[in-house]
Design a binder for these strands. Structure first.
Lengths: 248, 248
DNA sequence: CGTGGCTTTGAAACGGGTCAAGACTGGTGG
DNA sequence: CCACCAGTCTTGACCCGTTTCAAAGCCACG
């Protein structure tokens, strides 16, 4: 399994200092300060996985909930006959696990190298119950994810293969690059993972990438690198009615 | 617009008695008692719409949030060129609106006659902030909706037209009927709405309904009535790996 | 009894899937 | 250091399911 790491120097993560945590201001802990933050810090544990590792299988007991600190992980559901659909893509600060549910509802896989900030389920649930700063933030994040899921439903239900690929590339480019044109990024996903997320086959993803390149909308650099000189053109290909604000 | 009402005697709703409310134990108010319930009761207003009415358009200001009391409403997103995808189906006890957001993110349409129990946004947000019984329930409901949305992503991304239609019929039959075989129900959705939800065209929905009837899996009674003697067979057609537990 | 909206049915076109090679990439061991 | 190997990605040809376009049937309602 190719290792294409987005990991930030893991030395910083080995310490317990939430102050220097890269997701401090966006994760489920974002609204906590002082005592509350200390309490979270006491119950947390870091753990890392390599790209391609399965973090949890559908139906496994998941004894923790977690914030994704670095990297990128996917949530996937499998049908009886093996067909597979990615239903979520966790990026730094996203929350993994559902309070009140012991079993993983989806297979969780590390798309790149991943580090989680984990909380034991029981302790976290107690904290959730008595700490509005946590429960409010979690509600907010859940509603954002719901919006993202619904946006994705539009893509899955109504967009053409070309629009699907363009949409995904636009999202990745906007997230990863510091908006100076040309936008550049390394794809955190294999073609396989892209296909799974987009409800397509690998071959179709590959063909559409080539088509977008030949149309001059994007440039490819090796198998993972992409660049785009004209985001507007890419967004037009994506077929959105706005400018692709979504995906939490 | 054809009126196909699921409405329960609206006389009961005209009163302010939460005790006799059909969704009392499942809606966002479910965990509230005594004082808290009184407080909610004071800020609530009922309002009804006819089947086909638009309750809110995408981008409209929505000055309230609400629980759906009776009937069925759809959330729909539209692409620039007019393609349309339903992203949610609200059934009794479901929550409408997002605390903290003024604008409707989706078009909300009454699929059947609908009655909402509405709360003014401001007052509800205050209550949400200081009443764990409300915020906890809303979090739970949001996470259920997120699960349902993800389940739907699998359907949109990977299922065949036949499986899509079978899945939707199974869900409606299970919800609507009092599980004595044969399961019977009146569809709360037009073919158009079904197609919108399933990411298909009207014609394909119609063809698959006919195909399922000819295969002996379902019976059709007029244009809205369906019956099913063998739910297991229908679930097999639906292609699920379990027994279709989802959709909040 | 006619009208308009919803639904069904049919025929043809097309987009994406499937199957099958072949090319590239990065890592490994001679 | 280079050749090889396994895994990943690309490309091509063909096929099938769904959409598109068109027309006819059905139903509720005026």
């Amino acid at each position: 399994m190719t290792v294409s790491s987005l990991a930030i120097a893991s030395a910083a993560l080995a310490t317990d200092a939430c102050d220097s945590c890269p997701i401090r201001h966006r994760a489920v802990c974002a609204s906590c300060e002082g005592e509350e933050l200390d309490r979270l810090a006491e119950m947390k544990t870091y753990r890392s996985w390599k790209a391609g590792d399965v973090i949890a299988m559908e139906g496994d007991e998941l004894p923790f909930v977690a914030s994704l600190v670095t990297g990128c992980a996917s949530l996937t559901r499998t049908l009886e006959d093996g067909r597979t659909q990615m239903v979520g893509l966790l990026m730094p600060s996203d929350f993994l696990g559902r309070p009140g549910r012991r079993m993983a509802a989806y297979e969780v896989t590390a798309a790149t190298d991943v580090t989680l900030c984990m909380f034991k389920r029981g302790a976290f649930e107690v904290m959730l119950a008595d700490t509005p700063n946590v429960s409010r933030r979690l509600l907010e994040m859940s509603l954002d994810e719901l919006d993202a899921a619904r946006e994705w439903m539009v893509l899955l239900g109504r967009k053409t293969a070309r629009e699907k690929v363009a949409t995904l590339l636009a999202i990745i480019l906007r997230r990863a690059s510091n908006d100076a044109a040309p936008l550049r990024a390394q794809l955190p996903l294999t073609r396989d993972a892209m296909a799974s997320y987009l409800g397509l086959t690998i071959e179709t993803v590959s063909r559409q990438m080539t088509a977008l390149r030949k149309a001059g909308v994007i440039e490819l650099d090796g198998t993972r690198g992409i660049a785009c000189h004209d985001l507007a053109a890419l967004l037009t290909e994506a077929g959105d009615d706005e400018d692709g604000t979504f995906l939490s």
